[in-house]
Amino acid sequence: MILFLLAALSLAAVSPGAATERRFTYTYESGVLPAGVKELEPWLTWRAGRTSYFSEFDYRLEYEVGLVDRLQTSLYLNWHQATHEDPANPGQKVGDQGFDGISSEWKYKLWDPVADALGLAFYQEYTFQSDEFGWESKLILDKKFGDNLVAYNAVVEPEWEFGPGHSNISWNLENDLGLTHFFTPAFSAGLEVVNQNEKTHPGSGFTDSVIFAGPVASYAHENWWLTATLLRQLPALQRSVANPQDSLVLDNHEKFNFRIIGSIRF
């Protein structure tokens, strides 16, 4: 993780230009790259704290291109490194790491959060793995009020898992909200709230409904930017079916999520 961060920061520090600033890490804003502009964004997400020991680092490397002034596309490489309790030997930790496939993102901006009454963009992301396919759709709304920026995403993500002779589909519905204040044009800090609702059987209700909240801070120099969020799980809106006595859902989600994204333009 440290090597990944150092590499990202050192690349950012020597970068000759800048790129689309992101003021949140979980919540998207409506901005898209101008036509012909390209950038590289390294992502790191750390997730930790389940019922039994769990710590996972998710890495993404995003290559983003502005196709025309309202449309951008991205290609992601995804991989992870995890340590968790061995179910076969309680108390023993085991590690695993691996490549999690590629993702293709498409984002189309209709309205701007400053020039128009409301910023609006549509987002599609397709993830391909050897045994999984994910299709994520987002409605992105944002608005700048003076020195404050508010963004909201409604997310729908069906995910198909394929195994020998069978396939399963699960649904993730998510609400993301970000509020931040620009203390200077370069530095902003605020709050992000993420609500995740998972449904594993068609026709049934949600398996659980969890909510995370925490601080976000972002700094954008002319030549680079860096944004980080630390989220803590709050008492669930709908508790886990497996552990209804717990206010936190820790069998399927983590107590803490931390994400940092940087940007390098070339």
Binding site: E21, G31, L33, P34, D69, D112, P113, A115, K144
Partner: peptide
Amino acid sequence: YIAKCSGCHTLRL
């Protein structure tokens, strides 16, 4: 101005 500049940062008045 809107098309080119909002791609990198929120627009300044």
